[in-house]
Design a protein around this nucleic acid. Structure first.
Lengths: 206, 194
DNA sequence: GCTTTAAAAAGTAACCT
DNA sequence: AGGTTACTTTGGAAAGC
């Protein structure tokens, strides 16, 4: 009986140790990413859930916590890209993405696709563009959705191109390089999305 | 029969199969006897043997088991296995008994010739995930047949995990029907008939 | 879990002219 | 700007770390 009690104690302490470590990491990343408290709390809830289902076994706490944060951001529609989160971790993006997919599968969670619209305010403000640009970019994105040309494309690239056009129309042109930088995509992607959007909007370009 | 207002098609692109011989093989001997072979035990326990005519690649292990990849039909697979063994024998590497060949995985390309609304499909299909940030295709784990499909907005797709060609055909027709019923078909492609 | 093989889909990325 | 090449995703087996 004593041996069983000791084994149980060991397990409990190990789980508690894991949780404490995980919560420390969650605190650290949440601060760096300036996450709202409700996102942080949701991430903590998902993590405890994952531990209960034994999903954490064999994976680093850092990877799972990062994936948990990304998932919580997606659920709460707080725009934080995987790259942004990865940047503050020592593990690579591929491993975090793998953990994220594992969480979605094992916890059977459905998350709405990231709406390009959610990235617009951050890109606009990051470029110091007038608030009016947000509304114009959103209208452009909605037209693109109606035309069905957004399937399979990176939401950040679509948002970047929409903001590029919005800035142009407001007479506050920014280079594709600048926009690509704040949106976290390459100039080539901004250019490609721009060409498609210009086409459906009936704009001319050369 | 529930007719789908568009045609479907598929093409096998790659077959992964295991071949089991009745005895062990001396990999060092094979390496010295056959020139075009890659063998780096530190990196991987098997030696890599590439064939030209039926284009295929074999991973050969000392246990006498091998993995043959790259063929597009059972015919090609059988042809490749025969040629691999013939090449061994010709170069003084004896092989006895009849090899046991088993298909482990079939990868195929599929097409429903109509555009798909992936966002809507992800919402209606169970066991599916669509993350355009990470990959442009929707990943769907079909239960029957048990295969995985990567579905793109163009209506083209990749079917993998099948062990028989009939599973590939069933999977494409299944997904076409499901997408159609769920209203995820946007419209025909390439100005084709309907 | 990793290592190696092959192949498709469509998007994004890196590097070179 | 454009072109190439390469990497992302999926599945499966082999023997060994």
């Amino acid at each position: 009986k004593l041996r069983k009690w000791q084994a149980r104690t060991r397990i409990i302490t190990s789980v508690e140790r894991n949780l404490a470590q995980a919560m420390n990491e969650l605190d650290r990343l949440s601060d760096i990413l300036n996450l709202p408290s409700y996102v942080k709390e949701e991430a903590a809830r998902i993590y405890r859930n994952a531990v209960e289902k034994g999903i954490v076994r064999g994976r680093s706490i850092e990877s799972i916590i990062a994936a948990t944060i990304y998932l919580a951001c997606r659920e709460m529609k707080v725009p934080r890209s995987l790259d942004e989160i990865t940047r503050h971790t020592r593990v690579n993006r591929k491993e975090i993405a793998r953990c994220y997919r594992l969480l979605l599968r094992e916890l059977r969670i459905k998350v709405a696709t990231t709406d390009p619209v959610d990235y617009v305010p951050r890109i606009v403000h990051g470029l110091g563009l007038p608030g009016q640009a947000v509304k114009i970019a959103i209208e452009i994105i909605n037209k693109a959705k109606e035309q069905g040309v957004t399937g399979g494309k990176d939401p950040a690239g679509l948002a970047a191109a929409a903001v590029y056009i919005a800035a142009e129309q407001l007479g506050e042109k920014r280079t594709q390089k600048e926009i690509a930088h704040v949106a976290g995509v390459t100039e080539v992607t901004v250019r490609n999305r721009y060409k498609e959007l210009a086409k459906i909007l009936g704009l001319e370009y050369e | 029969m529930s007719s789908i207002p568009f045609k479907t098609s598929y093409r096998v692109e790659n077959i992964v199969a295991t071949v089991i011989l009745e005895h062990d093989l001396d990999l060092e001997l094979i390496e010295t006897r056959i020139p075009s072979i890659t063998y780096k035990p530190d990196q991987f326990p098997g030696l890599i043997f590439r064939l030209d005519k039926p284009r295929a690649t074999a991973l050969v292990f000392k246990s006498g088991k091998m993995v043959v990849t790259g063929t597009k039909s059972t015919q090609q697979l059988v042809e490749a296995v025969k040629k691999i063994i013939k090449t061994f024998v010709k170069n003084g590497v004896n092989v006895h008994g009849r090899p046991r060949v088993q298909i482990q995985n079939i990868v195929a390309g599929g097409d429903i010739h109509a555009y798909v609304n992936l966002e809507k499909a992800a919402y209606h299909l169970e066991d599916s995930m669509y993350e355009p940030e990470q990959f442009p295709g929707l990943i769907h784990r079909m239960r029957d047949p048990r295969v995985v499909l990567l579905i793109f907005s163009s209506g083209k797709m990749v079917i993998t995990g099948a062990k028989e060609e009939v599973e590939v055909e069933r999977a494409v027709n299944n997904i076409a029907r499901q997408l159609y019923k769920a209203g995820c078909i946007v419209g025909p492609r390439l100005g084709e008939e309907e």
